[in-house]
Design a protein around this nucleic acid. Sequence first.
DNA 1: ATACAAAGTATTGCTATGCGATTCAAAGTA
DNA 2: TACTTTGAATCGCATAGCAATACTTTGTAT
Lengths: 254, 254
Amino acid sequence: MSHEKKDSLYVQSVEKAFKVLAIFNAQQRALSLTDVTKLTGYNKSGAQRFCYTLEKLGFLRRCHNSSDFELTAKTTEIGARFIESNALVRRARPYLHNLSLKTEGATTLSILDGNEVIFVSRFLGRDVLDTTVTVGSRLPIYCTASGRAAASLLDEQQLDAVLNAQSWEQRTPQTNIDQQQIKQQILGCQRCGYAVVQDQYVMADLSLSVPIYDSQSDLRGAINLAVTTANYNQQQLIDKYLALVQSTARAINS
Amino acid sequence: MSHEKKDSLYVQSVEKAFKVLAIFNAQQRALSLTDVTKLTGYNKSGAQRFCYTLEKLGFLRRCHNSSDFELTAKTTEIGARFIESNALVRRARPYLHNLSLKTEGATTLSILDGNEVIFVSRFLGRDVLDTTVTVGSRLPIYCTASGRAAASLLDEQQLDAVLNAQSWEQRTPQTNIDQQQIKQQILGCQRCGYAVVQDQYVMADLSLSVPIYDSQSDLRGAINLAVTTANYNQQQLIDKYLALVQSTARAINS
DNA sequence: ATACAAAGTATTGCTATGCGATTCAAAGTA
DNA sequence: TACTTTGAATCGCATAGCAATACTTTGTAT
């Protein structure tokens, strides 16, 4: 993160504040001041100042009956304005909704951001394991269909850079963490125009993704249809819905 | 916002950075540096410094083929961690999903934040006008069922304060902006335990809300079922679904 | 109960950081 | 080509943010 920014325009306090917000997550929902010092590396004064400021601004609050801090609903506001304003997201939404209704699967639009994709639109159908992933969730490239499809829009040099930066965790017993194999699969997506991934990020998840490139905004991403392995296998999914997902992507792209 | 904070713990740069992010919205998606100076009141240098910093941090980027700034998908990340970590949101999600599937309407969970509610979970059904509102959207109390239901959990003094702070816009030709009448309606919700609102925020929207209080976290909010006036009138909606929405709320509360 | 430890809160003086004025460069207009 | 407007870079100065420390509260062990 802080690559020796001796940059006179760079306001360090802003980075520090965001770093405090960034240490909160599902595993660390409630953090004391001393937790914050440990997780950020700041000293007591710094942690105190930034927590205090973020509390005043309404992005942190004290947990009920405790002096610990937690995120507030207000943290969702900034991102919501992105979602509401982004042309690609707005354009894609009705198509994704429709696709979810027709297939009863979960549909998402993701956008490539750095070495991961971020979910920016999501519709859950009947046939879906509702995991905790939501709009705003950041997911790796190597073990998600969305990630692989989006990454297939990169040239080989960019792709290598992105793959080198993956954390390569064994998320499920099935997760393939062989970088060379994944690279070949993504290059395969480049040719066939879609990615299918099963049991790689969570078990029982079977996903079919098609890349999306918005030339207007120069954003790379993918739309994804997720179903459960209880109801489909890979071939069935492709046979039944590949054409539909691809035509949805075409509609969004135009 | 900046109520004379001569507070030595308060880091003003953080506030300034968030203010820059806050000027972006659906109407103002792409802003030049001079736009930013005008909308924030900062001078050229300040606007430059904060835009530069936020760009480095990845929350702003340049629009394609332009020097204007726009929000990035990364802005959704902080909020996503709230959504993923908040106990109430996690608990409510499957119930809301179910309610949406059963009714084919759109369901939401909102949380009271200051003088508005914020959508923190949302499921769209078949029968729904997909507006631009999403998770993270901030909505007024006076003209939404969610807002009124949530506000019905406040005592009279708090309620008056919240109502006094509303902006009382005539959002549709039907919007009731009579503060006294709205107050009476919210006091009515307190007694009957639900709120029904039609055509107040957008036309053709018909919503039924029940308040939610999470004693664990001391959060006040509401769940909402929205359908279109094309398919239901108020009485039909109540007859058909009030009991279901109420039992959903009970399930979430326990 | 009392002493002790640990965590949170408040204060203060110092200086590095962020400030705004200004200059420089580029792009768009007439 | 001159002129206007906007964005990028530079630079001393003062103040905003810093770390140390003192104070207060809460929890724990004796």
